[in-house]
Simulated scan of single mutants.
Amino acid sequence: MSLVEAIANVAVGYAIAVLTQIIVFPLFGLQVSLGDNLAIGGLFTIASIARAYTLRRAFEAFRAHGAGTITAGQVARRRRSF
């Protein structure tokens, strides 16, 4: 269900982004085709996914470090060093 939730979150975010662009761009004198709006929304969606992933990994690293636990990546690095 986590995957379904993640996909739904991205799909809803993309739809909201495109609808917002369609409404807001003309207010600023920007005339953009539907295809361009879809492409712009897609680029912002990719950026948003990358941002969310990076922040999630950073906070997980902070949590693991603060709790004194070892992450899977640290275990793999330690195994390679022996």
Rank of each mutant, 00 (worst) to 15 (best):
G66Y: 04
T69Q: 12
T71V: 02
M1H: 15
V32K: 05
T45H: 05
R57M: 01
L34M: 08
A39Y: 13
M1P: 01
A50D: 05
T54Y: 04
G73T: 03
R80K: 13
F44E: 13
Y53D: 01
I46A: 14
I23V: 15
I16E: 11
T71K: 06
T45P: 00
E60N: 07
I70E: 14
I23M: 13
V75K: 15
V4F: 13
A39T: 14
N37G: 03
R51F: 05
G29C: 00
A39W: 10
R78N: 09
I46V: 15
G73D: 09
H65M: 10
E60L: 08
G68C: 06
L27D: 05
A11W: 10
V4K: 15
T69V: 12
I70L: 12
Q74R: 15
N9F: 13
M1W: 13
F25E: 06
A52V: 02
Q21L: 06
N37K: 10
I70M: 13
V24E: 09
R57T: 02
S48V: 00
I22K: 15
I16G: 02
Q74C: 04
S33T: 13
A76S: 13
G41L: 01
F25D: 04
G73C: 02
V4S: 12
L30Q: 14
Y14T: 08
I7V: 15
S81Q: 14
G42V: 02
G42A: 05
G42S: 06
S48W: 02
A8K: 15
T54G: 01
L19W: 10
S81M: 07
M1C: 08
E5D: 12
E60H: 08
Q74I: 06
F28D: 03
A15Q: 08
S48Q: 07
I40S: 12
L55Y: 08
F44V: 13
S33P: 00
L30I: 11
A52Q: 05
A8D: 11
L55N: 12
E60V: 01
A61P: 00
A61D: 10
G73W: 03
R78A: 14
V4A: 15
Q21M: 09
R63A: 11
A6V: 03
V24F: 08
Q31M: 02
V75N: 09
G42P: 00
L55A: 06
S48M: 02
A47F: 01
Y53P: 00
T20E: 04
L19Y: 12
L19K: 15
V32T: 06
S2D: 08
V10I: 14
F62V: 10
G41Y: 01
H65A: 15
T45D: 03
E5S: 14
F62R: 06
V24D: 09
L38C: 11
S33E: 02
V24H: 07
I46Y: 04
V10R: 09
F59V: 05
F82C: 03
T54N: 07
S48Y: 02
N37L: 04
Q31R: 08
L27H: 12
Q31N: 09
A61M: 04
A6P: 00
A47Q: 11
G29I: 01
G35I: 06
T54A: 10
M1I: 07
R79Q: 13
L34Q: 06
V12W: 11
I49T: 09
I46K: 09
L27Y: 14
R78T: 10
G66A: 03
A76G: 03
I22S: 13
T54S: 09
V32C: 00
L43S: 15
V18W: 07
A50P: 00
G73K: 07
T54L: 05
I16K: 15
N9L: 13
